[in-house]
Design a binder for these strands. Structure first.
Lengths: 334, 334
DNA sequence: TTGTAGGCGTTATCAC
DNA sequence: GTGATAACGCCTACAA
């Protein structure tokens, strides 16, 4: 990059001081209209672009927010990020998305940006940080966890009530007469998934249905994981008649595995997904699934983050938004 | 944020000058091991974190690269970004992903970060900028277009040969005996898509098959777009026996629409997709599709970008990587 | 209403 | 080897 114009040169060319140029740049009302025009004309003539590094350093804020996402190809994130961005725009923040691949080292590198004052705050979907690390970070900096979280003090979180959502889904199966209900998920490391498993167990217990450990499987986030896990289930001596999946991608893979065996959904086995992404309606049969208010989750998370970035006394709170069970063909009473 | 430790305070506590601390920070070899240890012990004791805004300002480089993507929920981008990130890591660059929603205004806001020296370079998938704007920008700054591009001077681009790729796909249909071949895509505004349409027409012409304009449809990127477009096709008086789709999501929607009408793929209508994302193998039938070397595209794009960020004499070149037609069930000879 | 000047936190060029 | 010190580009009291 060749060296570019500075506020000094603009000042000189306009015959005013740098302070005045700065005032014009920041739309200060205490600049005479005539000088303002003079300065603006120079700015436009030479297409002067302020170097915001100078401003950021001086103000010690960057108006940038980092969004840490495990991966870029999970459909649920796209809409959450929309919510984040819309709220960010209201206050002029930049939103920067960085995938971590769920890799601890990578995540720490990215979190360095916060410590190094390169960004003002972070929203994270699922962290690999320990409770202590997160608490320590949360005391000094602004961090909000979204959807998925590590339960720690000095920490903010916006999510749905995962336990209840799973309870609702499994209860729906039970109401339809199912007794042999399986559950497949991505990873037991996820707090949200442990909560959902609790909800799953509570629903079964409440209806005096015994819980079979071999019907609970974990293995990944994607289509092929759902297919693989379901294939494992389908080799069991006693087969489930219903499968509760931790996200819609898994559910699609699950449905596929069942169909490949020549069985039908929901005729032979019913399926419920999670998230209500657009995948859910593209599947045949369309998926019954737990709707997460994705846009609102993002918007709310950013809202909380902005509060904490702006005020010195942070609030550390867990916000829960409403979920909803969307009933579609994959659990239709036959 | 409470005011945090600076290099000055570290210097004082360690009983050395700021210059020495800076040297330690930057791993300069000309520091005596003893003083190095003294400084490091202070740094660790107080968990000093350098404010990189100061460094960036001083060095006038940020080691940050912006990736502009139309949306976050297009599976092809995830893997391209992996390639970008891996190359970036080799030279210590941060990669920041920002969705533009294909919205010109948003894109310009983001591009401001480049002009304002908040990032050192940009990789963009599809821009809404005009040829002139892009050329102007490309002269002063480092920009690489990836996969999708606006054909302008002072511009870099990494992609496959879209025209030839489409030609290959359609030729495959023709070899299988198809004569009534349709094509559905996202938007005629995309340069890549116009190229692919040329390839489509060339293949037909070369085999003396007339081109029917009503068999070419455009309307969006996603499943539901593919379904809607296919439904339009299926209402035509003369139906195609093969449909070439501009991406795998469209193809999945296309297959779905056909199956919902009670027809079979490839029995009644054969389908080819584009990109070879993981969706392609999850569909039933699995999709024949044009493979793009996604990771390599990203890696190569970042490589070129780094060259241009580092050297003052930029190279403006268009790199084409190899595509490949992957044959699967959706075009299987019945 | 405008200008002067100090400082944001760091690096880099000198001397010593 | 190490230490002053002048930038980097901008903002903002304070003075005028």
């Amino acid at each position: 990059m060749q060296k570019s114009m500075t506020i000094q040169e603009v000042a000189q060319l306009a015959g005013v001081s740098v302070a005045t140029v700065s005032r014009v740049l920041n739309e200060s009302p205490l600049v005479k209209e005539a000088t303002r025009q003079k300065v603006l004309s120079v700015i436009h003539k030479f297409d002067y672009q302020p170097n915001l590094l100078g401003r950021d350093l001086r103000r010690s804020e960057t108006m940038k927010v980092l969004v840490l996402t495990p991966s870029l190809d999970r459909p649920i994130f796209a809409e959450i990020v929309k919510g984040i961005e819309d709220r960010a725009k209201e206050d002029g923040y930049y939103v920067l998305v960085c995938p971590t691949s769920n890799h601890l080292e990578r995540e720490k590198e990215l979190l360095q940006m916060l410590k190094n004052r390169l960004v003002d705050g972070v929203i994270t979907f699922s962290t690999t940080l320990s409770e202590e690390e997160l608490s320590a970070l949360g005391q000094k900096h602004s961090i909000v966890q979204c959807c998925e979280f590590e339960n720690a003090s000095y920490t903010c979180c916006v999510s749905i009530n995962d336990e209840q959502a799973a309870f609702d889904a499994v209860s729906h199966f039970i109401e339809l007469g199912h007794q042999r209900i399986s559950m497949i998920g991505a990873s037991t490391l996820l707090y949200s998934e442990r909560l959902r498993e609790q909800g799953y167990r509570r629903a079964l217990t409440q209806h005096h249905i015994p819980c079979r450990e071999e019907w609970i499987k974990h293995g990944g986030f994607f289509h092929h994981d759902g297919e693989a896990l379901t294939n494992e289930l389908l080799q069991l001596p006693v087969l489930p008649t219903a499968i509760f999946c931790m996200n819609d991608s898994l559910a699609i893979g699950c449905v596929n595995a069942i169909k490949k065996k020549g069985w039908s959904v929901p005729g032979d086995i019913a399926v419920i997904g999670f998230d209500n992404t657009h995948e859910a309606t593209m599947s045949t049969p369309a998926l019954t699934t737990v709707h997460q208010p994705k846009y609102d989750l993002g918007y709310t998370a950013m809202n909380l983050l902005i509060h904490n970035m702006v005020h010195t006394e942070k609030k550390y709170e867990n916000v829960m938004l409403q979920h909803q069970l969307i009933k579609r063909e994959s659990t239709l009473q036959s």
